[in-house]
């Protein structure tokens, strides 16, 4: 199914994706402002965590989807989706610092060190920062494509850390259905990359051998 949108169409697609990605945020604002939530602070914490994970999965899905569908234009949406993962991650971290610790950074850090599931989530968030910072065209140029690409492979670590954070959080209630689902999604998205990298290496060896 070849679908090759024009530059104009891609811009329109990006605009649609931009607005769609903001809907969960607006839903949170609306539910909170209209007083429909009994415990808004907990709801916000959960929802922002969930959406960080969803966007991480979507980001990781772009390359496999592009390869399978040959829709190369998908690549043009990836930066935005990745930045939304950071946006929801930042909101998630802010709710933790705000609602749990009322901006007491020292207390917050104590909590991070004391509780492994928070430690893991915090590391994942910190690792997202350099990726967000180097997401501009200027930074890609300054770093050079190769180095930039290596840096952004951090997402292969960040996503599993996010899953582990979620897993740990749910562990006590033996409520693993969601962590398992998202764990499998991330595993599949990473495994397909390993598979492709290996096939490529094998193909190269064969090519070299035939010389």
């Amino acid at each position: 199914m070849a679908f090759n949108p024009t530059a104009k169409q891609v811009t329109a697609l990006k605009a649609v994706a931009f607005v769609l990605s903001l809907l969960p945020f607006f839903k949170l604002v609306w539910l909170t402002a209209s007083g429909q939530l009994v415990e808004p602070l907990q709801y916000i914490t959960r929802a922002t965590g969930d959406w960080t994970l969803y966007f991480l999965c979507i980001t990781l899905a772009v390359t496999p989807l592009r390869r399978l569908s040959k829709w190369n234009w998908l690549l043009k949406l990836r930066r935005m989706v990745g930045l939304y993962a950071f946006f929801y991650g930042l909101l998630h971290f802010t709710t933790f610092l705000w609602f749990d610790h009322f901006f007491d950074v020292q207390e917050m850090l104590k909590d991070v060190l004391k509780r492994p599931f928070i430690t893991v989530g915090f590391i994942a968030f910190v690792l997202l920062i350099p990726l967000a910072v180097t997401s501009t065209n200027g930074m890609v140029r300054r770093l050079g494509g190769k180095r930039w690409q290596w840096l952004h492979r951090l997402v292969y670590v960040i996503a599993p850390l996010g899953i582990l954070h979620y897993w740990w959080m749910k562990a006590a209630k033996h409520d693993f259905s969601q962590p398992i689902l998202f764990g499998l999604i991330v595993l599949a998205l990473l495994a397909v990359r390993v598979y492709w990298a290996r096939s490529k290496a094998a193909a190269n060896t064969r090519a070299v051998g035939s010389v």
Binding site: V38, E39, P40, L41, W98, F99, D111, R115, F117, W168, M169, A172
Partner: peptide, 16 residues
Amino acid sequence: PRWSQASERRIGEDGF
């Protein structure tokens, strides 16, 4: 093990 019990939020009263 996963959170402090030193404080609590009173539903309907303790907000942002």
